[in-house]
Amino acid sequence: MTYIIPTDHIELSLEQSLDHCIKCNICTSACPVSAVTDKFPGPKYVGPQAQRFRQPRQPTPDESVDYCSGCRVCNQVCPTGVRIAELNGRARAKIVQQKGLPLRNRILGHADILGMLGSGPLAPLANTMLSLAPVRYLTEQVMGIARHAPLPAFSTYTFRSWFKRRARKQGRPSILSNRKVVYFHGCATNYYEPWVGKAAVEVLEHNGFEVILAEQNCCGLPLLSNGAFSQAHNYHQGNLRKLVPYVKQGIPVVGTSTSCTLTLKEEAPELLGLHDADVNLLAEHTYDIFEFLRIEHAHGRLRTDFKPLDRTLPYHAPVSCGRTASGDLRSMCWNWCPVCT
């Protein structure tokens, strides 16, 4: 399955952005991957530098680009606006086209299928299995997943099942409102951390929104970041089919996973070269929840009846946060949220 990346304005702007690289290595000094492994020589080398040698119908010059985690810190810190992460993303897709997708990436790329298999009543069994040393040894040998790498635990119930059960119990949506949002939960919330989704629903309903649980599929980011563009394209088409009808009724899509919302807004359209009206419509009407609440606040509509929480909580800003929601959680609610200062 070959996905032909179109020779579009994005490809052109990526090529042009090479000339903006002044080789200052700010990206390399900020890169979290090159900080911890020698195998990744840094964004400047595998991005704007190696790109000069990537020519049509020629073998890829440098496979170390596969170590790029796609976190986009390089884009964020670049003083001259080189689109390093997109260069890397498309370069990896070309490697996958030439050499195929390794088994490990094939499996890890399908967060949705993994989640479906592992979550639910059998989750304790799956979690126990995956914590056994011999099992981890085997998965390392066969699939190349490091045996000491922590794996997320499957949830005993999915977010969707909780939401549907709740609706059945109540016999009606908890709130009927003409202010509606479609909640994009993503795979992590549905299969691993349903409490994130429950909290999001509570906050949105508290602010008078009717939360709609629309059909949706994986945003496709795990496949995109592994260079499996044709499968990622199918996923994005699926989400367009399922979500655009809501957007056309004026209902925005709100997500709690910053990497999912960033994929819907920008990663899928830009990496895959999709620019039709539906793609743009979904991109423009998708919001990270904190971005969404910040805009609500800007219009004086956010309920700010917060209760003080006398706890110090650790916070690790998700890597896609800066791009999808402008800044991390702290800058998002800074100035109006008394809870986190």
Binding site: C24, I26, S29, A30, Q76, V77, C78, P79, T80, G81, S331
Partner: peptide, 13 residues
Amino acid sequence: PLVLAKGLGITHW
């Protein structure tokens, strides 16, 4: 104040 910047710049140069 909120400082908005395109990237890191002069300090690293």
